[in-house]
Amino acid sequence: MQIEINDLGKRYGNGKWALRGVSATLRAGSFVALIGANGAGKTTLIHLLCGLLDPSEGGVAAPPGLRLGWCSQQAVIDWYLSAYDNVLLGARFAGLGAKASRALSERALAAVQLLDVAHRPVDELSGGQQQRVQIARAMVHEPDLLLLDEPTTGLDPQAAEALLEALRARARAGAFVLVSSHDLTLLERYCDEVLLLADGQLLAFEPRAAFLERFASEEIIRVAYRGALAPADLARIRVRVLRVTTESPLEVVVRRGFPVMEVLSLMGGVTVTDLERQVPGLREAYLKLAQGVPGE
């Protein structure tokens, strides 16, 4: 099962294209990390997929009858209702019966650890709790398509972790999951694919490993040692690695996945006292791209 995004574009009333020429195939069961700078078009893409906006060009083809779970970047909350009622609203408007909705709402509130404040007015909750109300509402009816726009904003680290774990579980259960966030370190641990937007254009959409291979292909190995490294050994090391940054401690840049032992085995006559390996992730890849360094 897949959703085809075909040459999708959106131009707002001011004439500016917020998104243009975006084509991608979203697969059921895949957790997609939607990344990009502020104003890159992430929210516009989510709103187009939801149907909150009409495209100016292109379109989206999806299997019929998908149940949508949407969490906005801004609070979508009925301030005249309690936290429980806000979650219940999601289930009832999604078409679930009253009894099932009540049970699912309690479960969703328990999952985001809000059961103890469930019947308090939403405006008495903290920002993070209000965000959790939104998340519970987006997920209460076990949707097939989850579109979440910066859902980790305002969440504490444990809550953010628990949310992404739950989203991955939904993806494993066969749902489409698309999540935008600036918390790239966290996203990297859970996502299957990365969709990168820049200035409204699709810059990359590929599996996480391939994305990292392309945009974060270099690692840094740092070796602290006692003794003197022989010039001949250093010369051999220079041949094997991409470059040597410093000689003492020895810091070398290597291809992603390069075996550390190859470096260590060339360091004869010294005693290694510390070893550090920096593996760049989604965050580093993104920062590198943001600085205009092309992929390889």
Partner: peptide
């Protein structure tokens, strides 16, 4: 081609009791 991924079609007044229930709350 549709402009959105989620299905939203529903009978004319199927959600009326739900709207009323939440307005009452």
């Amino acid at each position: 081609m549709s402009s959105k991924a989620a299905s939203s079609a529903g009978p004319l007044l199927s959600r009326l009791p739900v709207v009323v229930a939440f307005e009452a709350r």
